Computed example of a mutant assay.
Amino acid sequence: MIKNENTFTYSSHETLILPHGLKTMPKVKSLFPFKKNTGILHKCINENLINVEFYTQSHVIIYNIAGIETITSYDCKSIEIKEKDLLFLPKDNYLISDFIKNNKQLEAYMFFLDEDIIETFLSKQKKVRHSPKNKEIFYKMPSNLTIDEYIKTLKNTSKTMQHSSDFLEIKILELLYLIDNTDTHKRLQDFLSYNNTYKDKRNIISLMKRYYLNNFSIQDFATLSGRSLSSFHRDFKTIYHTTPHQFLVNLKMQHANKVLKEENKTISEIASNLGYENISHFIKAYKNKYNITPKQKQKNHL
């Protein structure tokens, strides 16, 4: 299962859920009360963060004030955001963030948009929207003087209206209109419209092989692949003639077998790293595949 943990100690087995996983973290402040998954966060990070894995539960617009952050997608596409860049991230995506301090802190505002506020914005637009041929996982654009001024006043505004969720919606809609007003190609509208309606059906096997150590549930993999849970099960069984659960177990047992042969780890450590809370369940799964117990396997390679 994707974990909803608030911690600066990251590993390949921890995934931060955005936005709520950020809200109680040090150096991250909510400017207004959140309304569902809509809100504005200000972050100011003073330490290196490497391979920070996160999952977006709502659409995100990031305005970068200082520092350079690199965002990498599930298929290894990367984008770098610098001072006064705007980055647009769609919901339901697994991404990785990297930041090297280099004498500068990482400071940014993060605007989280749920479906309701996106529909409010899109419903007032006259442009006939279409689905782009190639969906963008993310894209960025430079800021402008009007948006820069909006950002400068945002912090002071939040101090006087910090308890108003209604004012939160006004400020987010204001940002969307400011961006859209200078966006001659209406890229923002297409991006929000597409990502609020469609999901690409990504390659199931490549996702599971890439992330099987992240302790994701089958529901998590279905979401990442752009499918409903029932569609994910159906497509998987049709194409690969097995269940997602069994395929995932096989991947984990293959990894366990390699670790037992090559690394000096306890059985409980291996089981825990593979997401097994009950060690007996791990032992049973391993024995079902290899006809010996993990302990016997270890003894054979001493």
Rank of each mutant, 00 (worst) to 15 (best):
L302D: 05
Q219V: 08
L89G: 02
D148W: 11
S58P: 01
Y286Q: 03
I147D: 05
T243D: 09
I62S: 02
S73P: 11
Y109A: 00
L175G: 04
Y109I: 00
K201P: 01
A222L: 08
H59E: 05
F8A: 14
K133D: 02
Y177P: 10
I204D: 01
L248T: 06
S268D: 15
L16T: 15
E47M: 01
E149Q: 14
H42M: 11
E14S: 12
T160F: 11
K289A: 11
L178M: 06
E136K: 06
I179W: 00
N257E: 14
E83K: 09
Y276A: 10
Y194A: 02
I239Y: 09
D98N: 15
N291F: 07
L18G: 00
K126E: 15
N6D: 03
G39R: 01
S11A: 12
K43Q: 14
E5Q: 07
N37S: 08
T197Y: 10
L89C: 03
Q189H: 11
I218G: 01
E80P: 10
F88N: 03
H20N: 09
E14V: 09
F111C: 07
I279C: 05
A285C: 04
H241Y: 09
L229K: 02
I68P: 03
N103T: 13
D92Q: 14
C76N: 09
L49P: 08
S280G: 08
K284Q: 06
I270Q: 01
Y109L: 01
S272P: 03
Y212V: 06
D180W: 13
F216R: 04
Y276E: 10
N300V: 09
N37R: 05
H13C: 12
I270K: 00
T293S: 14
H130R: 15
K91E: 04
I62V: 09
E80F: 13
M1Y: 08
G67H: 02
K186S: 09
N48I: 00
K23G: 00
K261R: 12
K186R: 14
N156L: 14
N102Y: 15
F282L: 03
L113E: 00
T266P: 10
S131D: 13
L18H: 02
